[in-house]
Write a protein that binds this DNA or RNA. Structure first.
Lengths: 187, 187
DNA sequence: GCTCAACAGGAGCTGTGACTCCGATTCTAG
DNA sequence: CTAGAATCGGAGTCACAGCTCCTGTTGAGC
């Protein structure tokens, strides 16, 4: 087990996480470690002591994000109307992605079959709960599963990163997907 | 104007383009110029004489791809049934993207508002023709435009690059989007 | 306060990839 | 066939980012 860190080390670790979250959200995974260190007000060496590789840092951020998004999703599943909660979740995630590039990476991670981190699993479970509740309420067709939902989420989030993606286009595109997700009247 | 190139130069230029097309399709835009030169059987210097920057080379490939895709799209618009041609086009593009990463970049380029290259414009026109024909035939709802179609195409193509995207998931996801694109019975 | 282990910092190492430069090598006009 | 201009090739340059290492500093137990 790891003993608890010295107080200044804990403080720096927290600062690095916060800075990395902002920078990654803004510039994507290609942001340089130096920029993160500068934003956190620490040296590069300090960053690499807390996180052995840049990849580890990114994973830590994604993990934290997964926990928060899963919690939010769980809340929505518990308190909202099943029929509308699912669509609210969809809209919310895509809104997040437009301003937080990290969300896109998180979803990409979630879409991969072989999952490593438990928090991402939790997120998938939360999405599954939301989906099945909406299906039971008759708001979503029954022949779609979590993989399809994640594919649509990933796709729309990726699209939202591109230029020329105005709020109007976003709303109309979402409307198309939502109509496609509803039970078909011919079924 | 530029005089015609020496015969060996023309041959090399062609080889570079072919090699670059293969490599970019396989590894995306981050593929190294050296690898392209090696695949083409020429030195790096030769690559950079024909294309001043790597970006220029990528643009040239995308341009060529745009011409071919636009031609294919135009064919489909002329010979196919308006009601089905649009959906065939959609399916075809996404199938291409799964094996040719460059297609994704092409579409990303097409989605951007400020267009530089004419071939990309031509592609957008071809998509527009296909879309309006399908709408006139009553196969596609009238409140979607080219931006929305491109957004859906870009998104699904990006999603198709990720692991865990099996043919089954692709078909079901496409089915959802197609149902969403059809005229709603309540309209 | 003192001591020392834990930690911070950032100059530098290393690997990579875009791009340049110039001697060697072809193609082509006459 | 030959001159010479166009072209080729790839070693070398430059910039950048991940990562290491060693010196100086700071927190915590005594």
């Amino acid at each position: 087990m790891t003993r608890s860190l010295r107080s200044d080390a804990q403080r720096n670790r927290q600062r690095i996480l916060e800075a990395a979250e902002v920078v990654f959200a803004l510039k994507g995974p290609s942001a340089s470690t130096e920029e993160i260190a500068q934003k956190a007000g620490v040296g590069i060496g300090t960053v690499f002591r807390h996180f052995p590789t840049k990849e580890a840092l990114l994973q830590a951020i994604i993990k934290g994000l997964a926990v928060r998004v899963a919690a939010e999703t769980g809340n929505l599943a518990r308190t909202g109307e099943p029929a509308t909660a699912f669509f609210q979740f969809f809209t919310w995630v895509i809104g997040q992605a437009a301003e937080q590039r990290t969300v896109v990476d998180l979803l990409a991670e979630a879409g991969v079959e072989v999952i490593v981190a438990k928090p991402v699993d939790a997120l998938r479970d939360a999405v599954a709960a939301l989906l099945t509740a909406a299906q039971r309420a008759g708001a979503v067709r029954r022949d779609v599963g979590v993989p399809e939902v994640l594919a649509l989420l990933i796709g729309l989030c990726q699209a939202s990163l591109h230029a020329g993606w105005s709020p109007e286009v976003r709303d109309r595109t979402l409307a198309v997907v939502f109509d496609g997700l509803r039970p078909s009247p011919t079924a």
